[in-house]
Amino acid sequence: MRGGTKAVARAGMKRATRVRLASDAALAVVTAAFLLPLLWLLLSSVDAEADLRVRLPSSPTTENFQAVLTDEITFTPMLNSLLLCGSATLLTVTCAALAAYPLSRYRSRFSRPYLLTILFTTCLPITAIMVPVYGLFVQVNLVDTMYGTALFLATSQLPFSIWLMKNFMDGVPTVLEEAAWTDGASMIQTLTRIVLPLMGPGMTVVMIYTFIQLWGNFFVPFMLLLSPDQLPASVSIFTFFGNHGSVIYGQLAAFSILYSTPVLLLYILISRRLGGGFALGGAVKG
């Protein structure tokens, strides 16, 4: 009897191992497919004679990085990106925090339609309104201005940030606030001294997520900014490498790495807070 159970258990173990090995093998194949383009990026960046294939560089070099680390190719576009995305992020997070507070704490007949509209707006394809936005910007002379582009970028991320911020704020208990209210603190004081510090991690997530989204945004600055000295890295990489007859692939790879590193690092910083639910657009607070 006992031997029988053991045999069943062993068969079960074997089956479990088989399933695990099969899963590992399947995942390895898929991972390899996903990895190849990334490998090209890493290997080409240190290969002076890089072409379009993945291959080990004969003699690894930092030549490509040295070649792109100039004002024209790297520093100006990265600084523009930082100014553009940084200011837009600050604006978005400030407006979202302010808006989320009453939405989370008070109830009126407007709050539900307002929030549903916000949720609806998070899904609208921003790409589709870029033609009219360009038309409007021409009429009010905002085309090719950094602040105009930053304002639009901030607004494009605003619905999602408000939604996310409101959900984070709902998680902050109201007890401390009530104490502050009784002590006669104003709403802004309560918000800045009590609520926002308490939801620090949530704020950081909203801020970093917004920044990552804006940093990678190509279409908006591509449409709204024209002068080469104002272009952020997302567009300059395209105009510089995309329009040159013979592309130096090693340099393209090197610059891509420089441009991607900030968002990869920021993502790692917040990845723990990003479960599947967050990815769903936070929207799915169902």
């Binding site: 383009p37 940093w215 190509f218 441009y259 991607s260 993502y267």
Partner: peptide, 8 residues
Amino acid sequence: AWVLPEIV
């Protein structure tokens, strides 16, 4: 692959 900027 998901976090990399679109253009990259």
